[in-house]
């Protein structure tokens, strides 16, 4: 990590879901851990998320979803990232994802899913171990 710029991470709430307790706690923890975190606020559309990822030259995108719309919105974001030439950006999903949907999200290219009760340290360790896929 020495002399390297901090990892750039966009955290996003997509759709109408207003449950932002988790994403705010994670934002704070990742900032405290030295990451550069961009959190654009609620009600993001898939389009606006992908635009933010491109504009901010992000290494990672973390999507927070607790409204059950993950199977509609996440694959759509994955497709749009590819179309925008952002395949190298790692995608994480946080929130309530039923067991049955986990393999489906991994199959569309999500790197990791962090469910409720995940210790903050686990997310931090994961990102440190993975590092940047953009600038590596």
């Amino acid at each position: 990590m020495d002399n390297q710029p901090p990892l750039r991470i966009v955290l996003a709430k997509v759709g109408l879901d207003g449950h932002d307790r988790g994403v705010k706690v994670v934002t704070r923890a990742l900032r405290d851990a030295g990451f550069h975190v961009i959190y654009p606020g609620l009600w993001q559309s898939p389009e606006s998320v992908v635009r933010t990822v491109a504009d901010e030259d992000a290494d990672w995108l973390g999507i927070s979803l607790l409204s059950g719309t993950h199977m509609t919105l996440v694959p759509r974001i994955m497709q749009m990232l590819q179309a925008a030439g952002l395949r190298h950006v790692g995608v994480l999903v946080g929130g309530i994802i039923p067991e049955a949907d986990v393999p489906k999200l991994l199959a569309v290219g999500v790197a990791r899913i962090f469910g409720p009760g995940t210790p903050l340290g686990e997310i931090i360790e994961f990102l440190r171990a993975q590092g940047s896929r953009t600038h590596a």
């Binding site: 759709g15 109408l16 879901d17 409204s67 719309t69 509609t72």
Partner: peptide
């Protein structure tokens, strides 16, 4: 459901995937 709570109709593009869900 979330669209109703947010004052949106079921056929609004922002309601996609949310209609009748919660």
């Amino acid at each position: 459901d979330l669209p109703t709570l947010m004052g949106l109709d079921s056929d609004d593009p922002r309601s996609l995937g949310e209609v009748g869900r919660l």
